[in-house]
Simulated assay, not measured.
Amino acid sequence: MNLLPNSPIQMHYSPATDILHVKYPDVDSVLLPIIKESLAAMVQAIINYDVKRLLLDASKTVIKSSIEENRSLTLELASHLSKTRLQKVARIQPVDPVREKQAQANINHIQEKGLLSYQLGTFATEQEAMEWLLA
């Protein structure tokens, strides 16, 4: 079921597997308020449906914001997710190695801040991510 049909974030929830599949949106400085609002709606859906497994597909996400804006957005999202009952978050990494390097730097920063209350895995393919989520 598509939970946010009019949002820049594509979200599909499968009650059978308890997995929320999210295509992470493109991040553009101009659209940050809309992206933040959409991510807040995603977190609310996680709370409302008591989702335990999240699949974040960032493989095709385009980043058109500063490193600081992107890091701030990532920290804010991690902070909100840590207040849910999520147990596992699987991330499909970007194909671009430069973007993945920045994403890993953001993840390291989140870990340093102690914001991970859930297991976090990074995968090259959706199949690998799904297998890990369902294990």
Rank of each mutant, 00 (worst) to 15 (best):
V51I: 15
V62I: 14
I63Q: 09
S66H: 07
T74K: 00
L75I: 11
L32Y: 03
E37W: 00
N48R: 13
L32W: 00
H21I: 05
P33I: 13
K64Y: 12
Y24L: 02
T74P: 00
V30L: 12
L39E: 09
S65P: 11
D18Y: 02
A40F: 01
Y13V: 03
L39R: 06
V51F: 04
Q87T: 13
S59R: 14
L32R: 04
Q87E: 15
L75K: 08
T74E: 01
S59W: 07
M42G: 07
I9F: 04
A16V: 05
I19G: 04
L32M: 11
A41V: 04
Q87A: 01
E37A: 15
S66G: 14
V27C: 06
S14L: 03
H21W: 01
D50L: 06
K83I: 02
S14N: 13
A40K: 12
K23V: 15
V43M: 06
L20S: 03
L86I: 10
T17L: 02
L54Q: 09
K88D: 07
I63N: 09
D18I: 00
H12F: 06
S14C: 06
N70S: 14
P8N: 05
L31P: 07
T17F: 00
S82L: 09
S14T: 08
K64G: 11
A58K: 15
L81T: 06
Y13P: 01
A58I: 11
L81M: 15
R53G: 03
R53Y: 11
I46Y: 05
Q44M: 12
Q10T: 10
S59K: 11
M11T: 15
V51T: 12
I63S: 08
Q44H: 13
I34A: 13
D18W: 02
E76W: 09
I34R: 13
V43T: 15
Q87S: 07
D50Q: 15
I67G: 07
R53I: 03
P25T: 14
P15M: 01
I46V: 15
